[in-house]
Amino acid sequence: MKNMHATQAVRGLLYKEWIKLRYLGLVPFALLLVGLGDSFYDMHGMKSANGGLSLWNAVIFRSHMPFEPMRYLPLFSGVWLAAVQFVPECFNRRLRLFFHLPVNEHKALFLILGLGAGLLSALVGILCLAQACITSLFMPAEAARLSILTLAPWCLAGFIAYAATALILIETSPVRRLWHGGAGTVFVLALVDARGYGSHIDGLPWFGLIAALWFATISNVLDRAKRGSS
């Protein structure tokens, strides 16, 4: 009987996430489409106007990035998705309801986080693959490879932004909200604030670990919110 209630609760949670994300979750994908189109027409335009050599010179010798407008897309998407998912949960102290579900609150939290992170993964996966395909249309495979390595830290910044936004929204203390926001900003800026191709290749494993740590922090904030609210 208890299992049945838990299953129904999980279904209910999934349905609630679907309701929240079905339209607003598409906004980052719409922006991605615009960004990819811009990247394609940047390269296509340069090649048709001045020839392939001009495009290669710009990219290889002058570090021109046709996908530059997408620098902040994963970051915005992370903040947006976390806000869409957690603002309705946390606004007006509604988080208290979360602790009365017939399912463990940490499982429920990671279900929501998993959905958001999965959606973000789909977005950055499409971004990297599509950009690699677009680059390969005009340039050798080496350029496509380095483009993906250049996009990777921006994508990691998106995951950190997602986890930090969720943390800020779940947090109940205004001082700690500011604290989490400041700490998140430090790492996000470290990932998006660099010029040139492949500037984070050596540091990617470390920044990946930091992104994973940000997700690990959320459950104890939820736990404290529960203790504070009970």
Partner: peptide
């Protein structure tokens, strides 16, 4: 598990402070 989560948050905060201060 919860201790690891607390340690993760404290560690990230220390790293951010070690960058800024």
């Amino acid at each position: 598990m919860m201790l690891l989560s607390r340690l993760a948050l404290a560690l990230l905060s220390v790293l951010a402070l070690a960058k800024i201060l």
